[in-house]
Nucleic acid binder design. Structure first.
Lengths: 147, 147
DNA sequence: AGATTAGCGTGCGCGGCGCACGCAGCCTGT
DNA sequence: ACAGGCTGCGTGCGCCGCGCACGCTAATCT
C-alpha cells in the first residue's frame, strides 16, 4: 500500500473532526426541533433510541461521559418533553431514562435528515460505488485506529 | 441508490463524531509529546503547519474559533517552545504565529502517527481498494453535508 | 438487624469559549 | 501634516459543560 494513502485519509479525518464541522452539522440537523435538542443533548436521545430505556450510568458509559452530565442533560430533555423518567420496577432506587413519543420522533427526524444529506451528496456517484464506500467506511470505523 | 446506504454512513459518522472517540484518538496521537500539546492546542499547530506563519485572526477563521482562543492556545504553546511570535515586518501592530523547529517536529510526528495507525488498520485491504477508499473519503468530506 | 454497597441527584471548582474593552499602530481625508 | 476612524492584538468577564465528591435512599450481604 502506498504510504500517501495514510496521509490522504488523515487529512480527510482531520477535516471531519474539526470543531466547527461538527458544530455546523449538528446545528443543521437539529434546526427547528426545539431549543432543548442540540449537540450537547442529542447523544443522550440517540443513545436511548439505540437500546431502549436504560439507566443514566449505563448510558454514560456508552457515550463516554460522567453520570452527572447525563443526568443534567436528561433533566433538560425531560423539561422539553422529549424524555421521561420512570422508576425501575426491579429496583426502587433506580430510574430509567426513556424517550417519549416526541423524543422518538425527534430522533427519527434527525437521523432521517442526516441520511438525506448524505444521500444527496452521493447522488452523482455510481450506486455500486456508493454502496461499496458505505461498507468500507463502516469497516474502517469499527476496525480503525479508534478503539 | 438504496436508502440504507445513507443510514449506514450515518451510523459510521455518528460513531466517528462521538466525543470519546475523538478524545481517545487525540490522546493516543499526542502521547509523550509534552504536556502542552493536546486536543485543544493541536489544531493551532496543525493549522500553522499547513499554511506557514500567519496571524491569530486568520488562523481562528480557519479552525472555527474566536481569536481570543487562538491567542491563549498560542501562548501556551509558546511557553512550551513549540511556537514563536514574530512581528509582522509589514505591519508593526501585527504578530505572526510561527512554528519553531520543535513545533514542526511535533506536528510531523503526530501526523506520521496518525497515518501509521490508519495504514495499520488498512493492512489487510487490497491496495487498490484502500486507494479507492481514500479518494472517495476525501471526496465525500469535501463535497459532503459538512459545508 | 446492622453494615456495606449501588444508584441517583446536586454543589463545587476547573477550564474552554465568545464578547467586549483598552491600547497601539495604520490609513484616509482635509 | 494631523485628526479621526479603522484594524489587530491581548486580556478581563461571564457563561456553560464537565468531572469529582458528598448526601441520601434502597438493595444486598453477613
Amino acid at each position: 500500500m502506498p504510504n500517501d494513502v495514510g496521509h490522504e485519509i488523515a487529512d480527510a479525518l482531520a477535516a471531519l473532526l474539526r470543531r466547527d464541522t461538527r458544530t455546523r452539522l449538528y446545528r443543521r440537523l437539529t434546526e427547528g426541533l426545539g431549543e432543548a435538542v442540540d449537540e450537547i443533548t442529542y447523544p443522550v436521545l440517540s443513545g436511548l433510541a439505540r437500546t431502549g430505556p436504560r439507566s443514566a450510568a449505563d448510558l454514560a458509559g456508552e457515550i463516554g461521559l460522567d453520570r452527572s452530565g447525563v443526568t443534567r442533560r436528561a433533566t433538560r430533555l425531560e423539561d422539553a418533553g422529549l424524555l421521561r423518567r420512570e422508576p425501575d420496577p426491579h429496583d426502587r432506587r433506580a430510574t430509567l431514562l426513556a424517550l417519549t413519543e416526541a423524543g422518538q420522533r425527534t430522533v427519527d427526524a434527525t437521523r432521517r435528515r442526516l441520511a438525506a444529506h448524505i444521500e444527496a451528496s452521493l447522488a452523482s456517484w455510481p450506486p455500486a460505488e456508493a454502496r461499496a464506500f458505505a461498507h468500507q467506511l463502516q469497516r474502517f470505523v469499527t476496525d480503525g485506529p479508534f478503539t
